[in-house]
């Protein structure tokens, strides 16, 4: 286990609890400041942790396990960046549990092997895994802003006295959602290209294009990745051409993120199955 993992997890738990308190009691303004300090410390500890793993050859591109750990760090890092201008404890309260669950799942899995240097396919695999991680992190952020949007929207639609997070407007949340999934899609496109190239290189030489496509479609992770890409590309198209925004866009983002998480689940289960054999 990396040395700083328990400290990181404890600090994240403190920050998460304080963000929940901040949502329930918006008047307690110091709570938000303490939560932010705690989260920034957690981010710093986790960064040291990841650096320590990198020194041992377990960099984020070396395996899905390390990639997911890196993903959780990106989630934690994204929140202070997103909320630097406008405090948004609701986002913190939604994002941190997600990061913590990912970290705990990762730590339950056996450690991966150190990556070997200089191998071209290894470089491609690292690029693929890293771009997928960044893409999934951004889809995750989009999903969290989507949940915050749905909560706020419900309050406004039903004329409840106070919106879920009084400091964030629907337009702001929707804008964040759009930016996150658009950049996520860019990163995920790189994932798709590198993944397709990598997989087709592994396909048998002499196969026709149709046979190669069929071979690819037999890979569940490829099918799920393609579905994720199509969903977010469709959402981007729908937003710019048809005006798909607001509640429907938030729900669409959530569905897309669920599919992208299922890709991780497939990889993690596969790793777990191989390690238990």
């Amino acid at each position: 286990m990396p040395p700083f993992f328990p400290v990181t997890l404890a600090l994240q738990a403190v920050a998460c609890t304080l963000y929940v308190v901040g949502v329930a009691q918006p008047t307690l303004r110091r709570v938000s400041a303490v939560a932010r300090a705690s989260l920034l410390l957690a981010v710093a500890f986790q960064a040291v942790d990841i650096a320590w793993l990198c020194l041992r050859g377990l960099h984020p591109g070396s395996s899905i396990r390390e990639a997911v750990y890196f993903l959780s760090w990106l989630f934690c890092l994204a929140y202070p960046l997103l909320s630097r201008k406008r405090p948004a404890p609701l986002l913190g309260a939604l994002l941190l549990p997600l990061a913590m669950v990912l970290e705990i799942i990762v730590r339950l899995l056996p450690a991966g092997k150190a990556a070997s240097n200089g191998d071209e396919s290894m470089f491609l695999a690292s690029l693929h895994v890293l771009s997928a991680t960044v893409g999934t992190a951004l889809f995750g952020l989009a999903a969290v802003t989507g949940v915050a949007y749905l909560l706020s929207e419900r309050h406004l639609k039903h004329h409840l006295a106070d919106a879920a997070d009084p400091r964030l407007s629907l337009q702001t949340l929707d804008g964040w959602n759009h930016q996150c999934f658009a950049f996520g899609l860019l990163s995920f496109t790189l994932t798709m290209v590198s993944g397709t190239y990598w997989l087709t290189r592994r396909a048998t030489w002499g196969q026709s294009f149709g046979q190669q496509v069929l071979w690819l479609l037999q890979k569940p992770q490829y099918v799920l990745s393609l579905l994720t890409w199509l969903m977010f590309a469709g959402l981007l198209f729908g937003r710019h051409v048809l005006g798909l925004r607001g509640r429907r866009a938030a729900m669409w983002t959530l569905s897309g993120f669920a599919v992208s998480v299922s890709i991780l689940a497939v990889y993690l289960l596969r790793d777990f199955w191989w390690s238990s054999k």
């Binding site: 406004l156 629907l170 337009q171 804008g175």
Partner: peptide, 8 residues
């Protein structure tokens, strides 16, 4: 205030 909750 409600309008501010809808628009940025």
């Amino acid at each position: 205030q409600l309008a501010e909750k809808v628009f940025s």
